[in-house]
Amino acid sequence: MNLLLIAMTLILLIPLYEAWQDDDIWQKMLAFASVASKTSIMILCISVLRDDWMIGVVGVIILSVGNAGFMLLAHLIKRITLQ
């Protein structure tokens, strides 16, 4: 489990690097979507690893609400860039 979590963290570095080096806003948004879903799955993994129900609830809430917020942000940015 330790090794799996480290592998997940290393995979998480790929969208982070992509968000840093690409200047296009939609490429960054894509990387953000990737990071958001990956971090919430990692929170779920840690909650199972530690057998902590409270962290698991937080992970599920972040997973569902974070995605909703991402859609809101995507529409806002579309309005901004279209002017």
């Binding site: 939609w26 879903s37 779920l44 992970g59 995605n67 909703a68 991402f70 940015i77 579309k78």
Partner: peptide
């Protein structure tokens, strides 16, 4: 978690592609 993944991520990719 499984349900919200299946529903939200599908919807998210559609919204993103639309935008």
């Amino acid at each position: 978690a499984l349900l919200s993944l299946a529903l939200w991520n599908t919807m998210l990719s559609y919204v993103m592609a639309y935008c």
